[in-house]
């Protein structure tokens, strides 16, 4: 065994826990307005000051919902205003989305034309009314027309887990809040000049997100995913299925011990 110095004890303590008063005085002395001194060898100051804006909200939580948000990474660097287009699963969707949309988008739900002109984003529900049978309805071309007129992309979004809710669910002390999954898709740039054509592309994209959401992304790419039921009781049944936590083990443990 080594013989360690018997006096080698202590240290590693960071010093005073109250640093604010000292720092305020030191900064005022050293860097007060008008007193800042630049070292002689320092390069010229630059106005370029990029900072990272974390656009992710992987697990937003409203008091009465347990919301998971996925797909925001597809919108990294999206600095322009956008038109957010979502399926209308329930009457609470505007409240839900209002909580999870990136704040830097400055989203409005009314006054779309004025909002887009002033650099704000807009949230629209092209189906008009919440679905009554769990299926995706026809889309009004208004979102596409706005996109073409203002040259802003459309971001498709799907909401799953809120079907049939006309009002916010009651608060519960049991901890079992309704789970909602909000999925963002890749932005769709305005192309062509026919809003009817563009809105069909958007609708297909929303439908594809719903299909992916209900099953398996890679399978939907391969074209072998089970289609989401579009009619009858099965559509309603599918719309009411509980939402899994994204990337969860609820289907199968990833590192299951054999």
């Amino acid at each position: 065994m080594r013989t360690l110095a018997s006096w080698a004890r202590g240290g590693g303590r960071p010093g005073s826990r109250l640093t604010l008063p000292t720092d305020v005085r030191a900064l005022a002395r050293g860097w007060g307005v008008g007193k800042r001194r630049v070292p002689l060898g320092a390069p010229a100051q630059s106005d370029a000051r990029p900072t990272h804006v974390d656009i992710e909200a992987p697990h937003a939580r409203l008091p009465r919902f347990d919301i998971d948000v996925v797909g925001l990474e597809l919108l990294a660097g999206q600095a322009r205003p956008v038109i957010v287009v979502a399926n209308h699963a329930s009457g609470v969707d505007p409240t839900l989305l209002g909580q999870v949309l990136p704040t830097q988008w400055l989203v409005r739900t009314s006054g779309a034309t004025l909002a887009l002109r002033s650099g704000r984003s807009v949230l629209l529900f092209p189906e008009g009314e919440p679905t009554t049978d769990g299926t995706l309805g026809e889309f009004s071309p208004r979102a596409a027309a706005l996109s073409l007129r203002h040259g802003v992309p459309i971001v498709p979004v799907t909401i799953r887990g809120s079907y049939g809710m006309d009002a916010l669910p009651p608060r519960t002390s049991s901890g079992a809040l309704p789970r909602v999954l909000v999925r963002f898709g890749a932005p769709i740039e305005p192309t062509g000049d026919n809003p009817d054509v563009l809105i069909e592309i958007v609708r297909d994209s929303v439908q594809a997100l719903l299909t992916e959401d209900a099953g398996n992304w890679y399978a939907s790419l391969r074209g072998v995913a089970e289609p989401v039921p579009v009619t009858g009781w099965r559509a309603v049944w599918a719309a009411q299925e509980p939402v899994e936590r994204p990337g969860s083990r609820e289907r199968r443990r990833i590192w299951g011990r054999d």
Binding site: V70, N216, W217, G247, S248, R251, I254, W255
Partner: peptide, 28 residues
């Protein structure tokens, strides 16, 4: 260390984890 579900989801994304977790295609 072998990554946790959350760590893997952070890196490859939820779509990939969902696609392969249930089929045994996610390995470490």
């Amino acid at each position: 260390k072998r990554p946790s579900d959350a760590e893997l989801t952070d890196v490859v994304g939820e779509r990939v984890v969902r696609s392969f977790a249930s089929t045994g295609g996610l390995l470490s």
